[in-house]
Amino acid sequence: MAVPKKQHANQPCVIPGGFTVIDIQFTQNSPAAHQLLVKEHKVRVEKTASRPLDRTLFVLNIPPYCTEEIITRLFSRFGDIESVELKDKPSNPEPAEPKLSKHFTPKQKQGFSVGYIVYKKPSGVTTAKAHPQDVPLIVSTEENPVKTGLQKWIHQYSRSLVSPDTLQQAVDSFMNDYDQRKEEEAERKKKEAEEQEEDEEGWVKVTKGAKGTKARPHSEAADKRALEKEGKKTKRKELINFYSWQHRQSQRDHIAELRKKFEEDKQKIALLRAQRKFRPY
């Protein structure tokens, strides 16, 4: 989409769709600028705390050399940032589950991405949307230089090497969290089983489960009794049709019942046809 060139000085450039254009330059002396498209994130389907509607800025066209740290530094001039999330494409927020260590998660694809910047205050989003296009943001500065070329590849390779102690620490931390979650789940199930036990009069206390979980109104003992009761009904039915003549008689009764229903349906159809007011023939 072409961006209008003629804009007043110190005025934000807003294009169709409600996006504000923000220029970024790799260095102060770069001859060309890259354009980011920012907009307030307003997806009401996402009712999560990770992306609040009034404090989240949605960013498009983020170049590959911009990491989460760089985006945080560039956009922190508009306000204090709570979190930055880069994605390959717009997507729903990840469920609130324990995150794996960076050593066990797949690397993000190298390419243009989209970002979700959550500010601590709504004024950060407003200030970012009001930023003028003729004031570019500088990616690589003397205080915060960005590695390029051979230095960049050497730095990435060095970061990819993990010491055995660090890896073992990550594994131990994950296993401790896993064991703790399993113990909490077992304790919860035990508590639910105790609450759903029958009292002396045979009543079962039905409790409402946690939010997002299915209610379990019956205990295992109650489910077992229901299965036994169903099995007794099946056996009783089998005993009724134990003899062959009983089976033939039940079939005859069933056929007679179907014929009776068929005749009743025919009479109903004939009555509807007789009452029909519109007669095309």
Rank of each mutant, 00 (worst) to 15 (best):
K107F: 06
T72W: 06
E183R: 15
K89R: 13
D80N: 06
K211D: 09
P64R: 08
R236M: 12
P98L: 06
H8S: 15
G124D: 01
A49C: 12
K87S: 06
S173C: 11
V14M: 01
T207G: 07
K235C: 12
K109H: 00
A186R: 11
R181D: 09
L36T: 05
K182Y: 01
Q246K: 04
P31I: 09
K214V: 11
C66S: 03
I15G: 03
Q110L: 15
A128E: 00
F19D: 11
T105D: 02
R44F: 15
T67I: 04
K147Q: 03
N241H: 13
T105P: 07
A32M: 11
S101D: 05
E69I: 01
T126E: 08
L74K: 04
A96I: 11
K6R: 12
E198L: 10
E68C: 10
R273K: 13
M1H: 10
T105C: 09
Y281W: 15
K99Y: 03
T105S: 10
K89P: 02
V204P: 00
S83L: 02
E238A: 11
S76Y: 01
A96H: 11
I70R: 03
G202R: 00
K214I: 12
S163E: 03
T148A: 09
R276H: 07
I70T: 08
A222F: 00
E264G: 10
I81G: 02
P217M: 05
K147R: 05
E192G: 00
A33W: 05
A49D: 15
R73G: 08
H131T: 05
S91Y: 08
D172M: 06
R225C: 05
Q35F: 03
L60R: 13
S160K: 07
N29Y: 10
G115P: 01
I62K: 08
P64H: 07
K87Y: 09
I71Q: 01
R181W: 02
L100A: 13
Q249V: 10
K129M: 13
L150I: 14
H254I: 13
N10R: 08
W203P: 02
T48D: 09
I154F: 09
N61E: 03
R236K: 10
K232L: 08
V135Y: 03
Q169H: 10
Q11K: 05
A222E: 14
D172N: 08
E198S: 10
I15D: 01
L60K: 14
G115W: 02
D223L: 15
G18E: 04
D165R: 14
A270L: 11
A2K: 10
S30D: 09
E97W: 12
